[in-house]
Amino acid sequence: MKTIRLFPTIITVLAGLYFLVPLIATFKFSLEMKRGELSFAAYQSVFQSDTFVQVIGFSVVASLVAIVLGALLVVPTAYWVRLKLPKVRPFIEFVSILPLVIPSVVLVFGYARIYGTGSFLPLTMTETGLNVLLVIGYVVLSLPYMYRAVDNGMAAIDIATLTEAAESLGASRLRTILAVVFPNVRSAIVSGAFLTFSISLGEFVITSLLNRPAFGPYMVQIGQDYAYQPAALAVMAFAVTWVFMALMEFFGSRRPGQRIFPRLRVSRFRRVGS
């Protein structure tokens, strides 16, 4: 006899409603800009705004730079720790989760003190300097996710033995990293990259305190001045996040060497005599 598990079902339905009702309400509200009809006028209004295009462009570029910087920092670190310094791993893991413990506002005030007026490196005094600090802030915020994704990717393929195998075949350390390590943790890096992108795109505290023209503060500003456009922006932000989650799942579940789309392959190595 099939047992109906009542309590878990109720909890699941309630959790689903808690999540979906505000989202559906926001979406419906975002369509009601024109009195008496449902339309995408609020979305149209958002896209027609020059400021929106500027801030979204700025945020995308800053996020992409943060991804590259994060990958360049995390991949060699995780690789070296797994290969040569396994005893240091708990410490590195602890450092990587610090951004979850230390509030962003503390980080920004730390920046202001160290890189402010009179500092040996007065980054807060120039626009470029502030942009650099913003990107570094994004890298720090995404560190827990990027490090974990890459480290798990390396754990899954026994990176130490693969490195030794490559070296026994004559490969230099650089070649080993480029030909063996990177391709085999690519899915993990991509997962970390999408998380970094999602975090950076909607980040508010650091961006606002550094006074950067990015998407997070723009959304807050719009929310104070308009009614329907913020709802449209919130729905779009949700949609973008979901798309990235889906891409992460897609890349994360792929086997190394598996192609995105199957294609006909012609053997490059033919049998002797054939």
Partner: peptide, 11 residues
């Protein structure tokens, strides 16, 4: 060198 865990490059 041949390893116990094969160590073929998965990619």
């Amino acid at each position: 060198m041949v390893f116990q865990a094969y160590a073929l490059f998965p990619n």
